[in-house]
Amino acid sequence: MEYLVASAIGLTTAVGVYLVLRPHSFPVVIGMALLSYAVNLFIFAMGRLVVHQPPVLQPEATGYADPLPQALVLTAIVISFGMTALFVVLAMRGYLESGSDRVDGRGRRTPPAVEETR
């Protein structure tokens, strides 16, 4: 199982990094989301993989998964939503202001179309 999880983390990281390096805003947002998955999974995996032992206290439980990485990842998931939302809104506003969604500094800076036609 560890092989699967480790390769999943690696693959998600790789695709995330590749998308983050694209010159347009939307793939960068998606790339950041993928990197968030990878990082969350990675931190979670630091508590090692444990099956059928959720950290909810029960008299008959034989052991518990490490709750600390879980608590860290739980807030990280919500924060990464906040981050994605902020990114995407920044990308939107930037696009609306400049008419270009490039993020490599080579975007065309055109005035809004209305000004061109009127």
Partner: peptide
């Protein structure tokens, strides 16, 4: 793609190395 592959490989190797070792938890 090369940068991404290197990053992915590193993340996977690190995760695997950590997961296949025992550890002391503070939890």
């Amino acid at each position: 793609g090369a940068i991404a592959a290197a990053a992915g490989l590193g993340a996977a190797a690190l995760a695997f190395a950590a997961m296949t070792r025992d550890f002391e938890t503070i939890s």
